[in-house]
Design a binder for these strands. Sequence first.
DNA 1: ACGAGACTTCCATCATGTGGGAACCCTCGA
DNA 2: TCGAGGGTTCCCACATGATGGAAGTCTCGT
Lengths: 261, 261
Amino acid sequence: MAQDGARSGTQSIERAFAILRLVAANSPRGLRLTDLTREMGLPASTLHRILKTLQDGGLIERSREGRRYIIGSELTLLGLSSPMRHFRELASGTLRSLSDQVGDAVFLSVRSDADTVCVDRKIGDFPIQVLSIEIGSRRPLGISANGAAMLSRMTTGKAAAILDQNADRLQSFGVERAVLMERIAAGRTLGYVQIRHAIVEGTSALAVPILDVLGQPVAAISTIAIAWRQPDHRIPLLIGLLQAAAAEISTALIEDATRRR
Amino acid sequence: MAQDGARSGTQSIERAFAILRLVAANSPRGLRLTDLTREMGLPASTLHRILKTLQDGGLIERSREGRRYIIGSELTLLGLSSPMRHFRELASGTLRSLSDQVGDAVFLSVRSDADTVCVDRKIGDFPIQVLSIEIGSRRPLGISANGAAMLSRMTTGKAAAILDQNADRLQSFGVERAVLMERIAAGRTLGYVQIRHAIVEGTSALAVPILDVLGQPVAAISTIAIAWRQPDHRIPLLIGLLQAAAAEISTALIEDATRRR
DNA sequence: ACGAGACTTCCATCATGTGGGAACCCTCGA
DNA sequence: TCGAGGGTTCCCACATGATGGAAGTCTCGT
């Protein structure tokens, strides 16, 4: 039953986290007990015991419609203490003005191991907005434009390793590995990633990575719109704006890190 | 060794959460391993093992100066999925304009079991600001003006029970239970709580509770300033502003809850 | 350079968490 | 009204995951 070989001595705690990540990955709908048994391959009684503990601690709650498990308030409260909150705030202004300039929705995602998490999004003033993803949503690294942008700044080996790690989940999202590899390769040479027909038919996405002080891609920003808002001749302008915003966030990030040493 | 009688079958997970809460309560400084052994009464080896797991999961990190444990990015990311995030956002505008009106720092706290957690704060334009508490800070319910405000809207029995639960921690903050009881009783009749010489000598705080649809105090807002900014003749004005803001947030909260049923 | 206190690792031991089974309850759709 | 699928609670034998004492390593301050 142990899929990882590590005898770390903290099985139940690790299971609890795995549950939290799964629940977050299915936000905001939430997951039923049955879903969790399927996903985690554990008996319902074991899961139920852990879930009850998580619920007592306020780390998960039950949605009122379905009796689905969703992320609880306590996690937000705990998360307010983390330096990551400052990252969100430090990027907020840049993101806002980027959205004002492009007129379409913009998204900021960070990497979390082999996932991307959307940490913020701003809506532009153009009447049609493509709101592909909620704040807090967790996706396998690679499927979103932001994910591909981050992968395009890693070594090919590292990128491939992450795609391997996500293989089954990518499949369940109906994404071909070869398509991703190609997209990443293109991103590597161009410096940005473009996806036509991103989430929904007729939409288009552009993304650029955000680098930390070591040059590692820790985050990415993207803009998504209906396809004709991103014609070829407008790409250079949009990419320029995205890259300027990415550089601004990257600089602020590095300054912030050094300031608090 | 078991301080609670419940044989719940999830000892290690509960310990992990207790650690997270303790670390959050000592944000942003963080805690050393020794601090945790003292606070939790567990051997260092056991704590170390759990801490390593929490660290591997990104739920805690090490601060670079001291090797102190602090809340990790992953908790922020998980917390973005919770409905509690909406509460923060829905209150943000009200809080901003409240701060603009009073000119001093204002604080929004929510209740988390027997704690208060500061979820947001805004700074006014008066040149001297009393920034008593960081966003994310967790304190035993009762010591802050916001805490007292919440207690003043509970039954005396419930309030007393919470103070009992927090007895030891209140002591370590150097707060007399009798003083709190008096403060709460005053709050009950007046409808607001005032604390002279709040955190630091020469400061003053005012707080009012925020009620949910059932009339339960789920949050509170306060303003803190140097004492002469809150002279007696200005109290009615300030309380009026605080209560208006509290009502606004309460209404938004209830609307939001019904909208998503 | 030294010592004390803090941190980390090891490992024998056993309490803790596990998971199968089964009964019961609840909700929803037919 | 009924049935089916899910959710919840209980029990218990088992083994293994978690425990914590002890010993080793690191990191300060003096």
